[in-house]
Each structure stands twice: as structure tokens, then as C-alpha cells.
Design a protein around this nucleic acid. Structure first.
Lengths: 299, 299
DNA sequence: TGCACCTATGCAGTAAACGCATGGCACCGG
DNA sequence: CCGGTGCCATGCGTTTACTGCATAGGTGCA
């Protein structure tokens, strides 16, 4: 009998949520679709995995036993993909570097150039992803190394913080707060803030500063998948955003105003690679980034 | 990105055969179907896994790296299925015993009865499979323990030979050799012999006594998936078969003649369970079979 | 140059999966 | 006791994906 990893992901999400409707939402499918896939899995295994008591959904003993194996299979499939892709790239002397939005800013840009200068036979391929996509890409081997904004799902990754950036508020050009030199997090209490469904919960909370100092919850604005979408929301005045300093230079627009927020923790940017990495290009690149970060700590 | 285990099985088979046509045959699919699935996998991985040079098919370095991971995933999926099913059965106090054809003959029958007598709360479920199916069922957890005819794919299984049976020739009732008391393997040199595509190659060879004493190859007759199909071929005179002694009593028919073949090795029947087994019902059942086999070695 | 062998592709038929709408059931509050 | 709410299952129509067949295209050998 066969399965696909999608079915396993559905199972694991449902086992986590114990609620078909919520799990389906988080998997971006309809609830009937999830329901049928789980039933099909149970039919294939000839074993119920969940007990549906009308009021609540529970794992059966068989489901309980199956859960860790399913998690392991998903992780192993990611590792298998990674193996094939990493070997292919290394053989072609290609170093694929992942990042989201502005990545590590000028530090990344200088690192690409300097690395190719020192290794003329190597091609560096910077690869841009939607929010959180650079971490998934690392796990699946779509990139060899990545600049990651912490916090992130770093299990199985080697991480090294190479840069710290203050965070700024992004406002529509005509926004009342645009008149200030700096803004406090308290000033933003009434402003809807953009967020994303693509990144894990703690990533979203960290960026939105949730809970706020004092304990309140931010007002959740529209969702988006990447910088460009986010900035459209901000420029149109629908919501505000909080972003690292490098984004103010990489994504400056006449319809936007950027103001520093001094009273929240800065962003830590790490260079990350899977712990299983053996590629000397990756360790060499990480060493170069470290070197550049210390010799020229700010730009 | 997702895969299903079927795609992985296709990949592994092709990596073994290095020939699309032959691999497709062994997978019971058309060659174009296999071709497209492999191309899809390569597209998903964004990496060629095989090098097609017109004359031959070779693994790329990426394919080479991916192969052990793919094998591991298939094995792990079997283990995952087994976990869920075994837990469910154990919880219901059910012991599922696999066998093909006549299994271990009367030894099995006595074991089921005696085990249920000693454990009134336990239900023993004998489960019959096509050729080789009892071994797959063990790996996938469709049964907890099985009577297996050796040789078999016993990797990952604990095996213990509990019974040895001489082998007999099955002939159509009117066959010239049916007049003899016994037949020699040499007498069968010109007789087409049935075989199956469901079991591994060495299983088929062992049953057909290939190579024959002296080095010749048997004449391959029609294929079949289980006893009933096999006996139809034999009774119709299309081919002969070689079977263990217990089959002569379990499948006696007026249109068949059974004659012992003294000059070939006997069948060894083992009681098998996955090495990971912790179910006390399984070890108890195996102990009982051992006990019955020694107290009453023949029936 | 023609043939044998092997993989890729066009095409048509079939099976599977999806989303939407809705049914059915359990619990809750008035 | 009864209507409301939350939640999973199911019927239905549509779309997508997969399969086999026939065949094109490319390679090496006689």
C-alpha cells in the first residue's frame, strides 16, 4: 500500500489540532477534503486513527503510535530531497543562498561578491523566498545556506547570528505618526498591523510585538505573503508594519515613511545551514560572512 | 513538496534495473507511465536522477545520493503502517496469523485451536495470502506473525524453522507419470512448471529446482498468484507443480495426482515475526508452535 | 543504410480529488 | 423542550491527474 507525504502532513496537523475545521484552515484546504483524506488513510491502514465523539476528536491508540512515525517520515522525506539537491548543486559548483525580503541587507550583497571573487569557479545563486520560505527551502535542500530572521523553526539547523538590526515602523506617507522622528511601540497600539499565515505563530507574534509591553494584544490587520504585498497594504494606509532597518533602504518608496522604534528588541539575523551539511562551500561562505560582519559591522 | 511511496518504489526499481522497459514490467505498469513518473520526480526535485544516453540509463550523482534515502523511506513507511496496525490489533486482543496456501498444514490448525483454548480472551485470526503475500503482510503489519515457506525475503524478520516437509509433484490425473509411486526430478525435465511473478526470483527458482541437478533450466509454464489458480493449470494438463506434502491433503482433487519427489531438498517452514515485535501474544504463539512441533513432529 | 532496441510524447479514456452546499448529530442556553 | 450553534460527513458536479496505446525520435550495431 502507498501513501503520499501530503496525507501524512494532513494527519499530523489534525493530530495537533484535534479539530477538522481548524486543521483544514491551517492546511489551506477545505474541511471535507481533509475529512476524506483522513478517512482514506484510515481505510488503507484498516484502523481508525481518530475517535470522533461528536463533540471532540481524539487520537486512538493506533493513531498515537502512528503519529511519531508520520512525523519522522515527513522529516526523512525532507532529508531525502535535500540530499539529492545538495549533491547536484555541489557537483555544479553552485552555492545557493536563501533569504526573505532584504535578507541581511548589504552584508549579504558584499558576501556574494567577495565569495565569487575568492572562488572564481563557484557560482553564487541568491534565492529570494516569501516569509518563512527560506527556512523550508533549507530543510528541503532548495538552498544550501540562508540568512534567517530569528525567531524561526531552527530545529535541525546550525545557526550563527551575524547581524543585529533595529526595527522601524513602516507607515503610509500621510500617516499622523510620520511627523515624528521616532515612534514608540505604545504609539502603535491602535494601529492594525500586517501579518502572515506563511510563518509560524511565534514568528508572527515576535514581529507584531505580541503581547505588547503592558500585556495587550495588537490589532491584527491584513495578511500577506511577502514584502511587496505587505508594503501595498502599508502604503494604502490599511495597516502599519514593523521591519528591520535594511528594509528602509532596500524598499524605500515615496508613498512610505519609515520611523525607528527604539523601545523594542532589535532583529537578529543568522546565517543558517542544516546540521548535516558537509559542503565546504557552505562553511567557507559562513566564515566569510562572519569575517565581513566583524570587519564592517554596520552599513 | 510531496511524493508518494509509489513514485519512490518506481525510482528504486529503475535504479536497480537501469532500464525503463524492464523496470516497468516488474512494476506491472506501462513503460510510458514509468517514464513520466520519473520525469515528474526529477522535475519536482529540480534535479535529473538518471542520465539517458540513448544506449544506456545511468544514475546521476544526485540519483546515487537519493537512492539509499528512497529505500529507507519505503522501509520506514512499512514500519509506520506496521506500528499502527499492530497496536490496534494488540489492543483488541487479536492475534493475526498469516500464511499462504496450506501454510504449516495441521501444525497451524492445531496451534490456533490450542492457543485460543489457553487464552480464552484472545481471538486468533488466520489470514490467507497469495504467494509471497504473507511476508509483505508481516512487513506492513497486516499480520502479527506468519508461517513462511523458505526461502523468503526475511530481512527484518525473526525466523524459526518449525517444520520440514517433503515435496511432491502435482500432476493432472491422466498424466503418464501418475502411474509411478514416486517421481524423480529428472523425470520432470520435459514438463513445463508453473511459477509466479508475485514472489522473489530466488523463491521461484527454489521451487522449480532451478538449476536442475546437472545444470539445466526448467521449462517455464504459466504463471499464477495462488494455489487455486496454480491447480487449475495443473489439472488442465498445461503444466506440473511442485508442492509441500501438506498441500496433497489440503488440496486433494479427483482431477489431480500427487507423487513424492525423493531426490530434491524438502521445504522448511518457519514461524516469522518482525524483529521489532514486543507483543507477548506473538512470542507466546511462537512458543506454542515450537512445543506442538516437537511433541508431535509429523501429521 | 537498415534494423533492433529503447525512451519520450500525443491522444483519448478513466479514475481520483477538490470545493461547494448541505445533511446530521451533539451540546447549550433560553 | 426547542431553536441555535459548532462541527464532521456526504452528495454532487467539475476539474485535474494518471494510465495505456500507438508512435515518433534517437542511438548503436550489422
Amino acid at each position: 500500500m502507498d501513501v503520499d507525504t501530503r496525507t501524512l502532513r494532513y494527519f499530523v496537523e489534525l493530530a495537533d489540532q484535534l479539530n477538522f475545521t481548524r486543521a483544514a484552515e491551517r492546511l489551506f484546504v477545505s474541511q471535507p477534503s481533509l475529512s476524506r483524506r483522513i478517512r482514506q488513510l484510515e481505510a488503507d491502514l484498516r484502523t481508525p486513527l481518530f475517535e470522533r465523539t461528536g463533540r471532540e476528536v481524539l487520537l486512538t491508540p493506533a493513531g498515537e503510535a502512528f503519529l511519531p512515525a508520520a512525523r519522522q517520515l515527513i522529516a526523512d522525506w525532507q532529508a531525502a530531497q535535500r540530499t539529492a539537491r545538495v549533491v547536484a548543486a555541489a557537483r555544479s559548483r553552485i552555492l545557493r543562498v536563501g533569504f526573505a525580503a532584504s535578507g541581511a541587507g548589504a552584508l549579504g550583497t558584499r558576501a556574494y561578491a567577495e565569495f565569487m571573487k575568492r572562488h572564481p569557479d563557484v557560482t553564487v545563486e541568491p534565492k529570494r523566498f516569501d516569509w518563512g520560505g527560506e527556512v523550508t527551502a533549507l530543510h528541503e535542500g532548495l538552498v544550501d545556506v540562508a540568512f534567517v530572521w530569528l525567531p524561526a523553526r531552527t530545529a535541525g539547523l546550525h545557526i550563527e547570528v551575524v547581524r543585529v538590526e533595529r526595527r522601524w515602523a513602516g507607515l503610509a506617507a500621510g500617516h499622523p505618526l510620520a511627523g515624528r522622528d521616532t515612534v514608540s511601540i505604545h504609539d502603535l497600539a491602535a494601529e492594525p498591523i500586517v501579518w502572515t499565515r506563511q510563518a509560524p505563530r511565534d514568528w508572527v507574534d515576535w514581529w507584531a510585538v505580541n503581547p505588547r509591553p503592558g500585556g495587550g494584544e495588537p490589532i491584527w490587520g491584513p495578511t500577506n505573503d511577502n514584502v511587496e504585498e505587505m508594503l501595498e497594504h502599508v502604503a494604502s494606509g490599511t495597516a502599519i508594519c514593523i521591519s528591520p532597518e535594511s528594509m528602509t533602504s532596500h524598499y524605500s518608496r515615496p508613498d512610505l515613511a519609515w520611523r525607528p522604534i527604539p523601545d523594542i528588541p532589535p532583529l537578529r539575523i543568522a546565517i543558517c545551514a542544516p546540521v548535516t551539511t558537509t559542503n565546504p562551500l557552505v562553511t567557507g561562505f559562513a566564515a566569510l560572512v562572519r569575517e565581513l560582519a566583524t570587519t564592517e559591522p554596520r552599513d
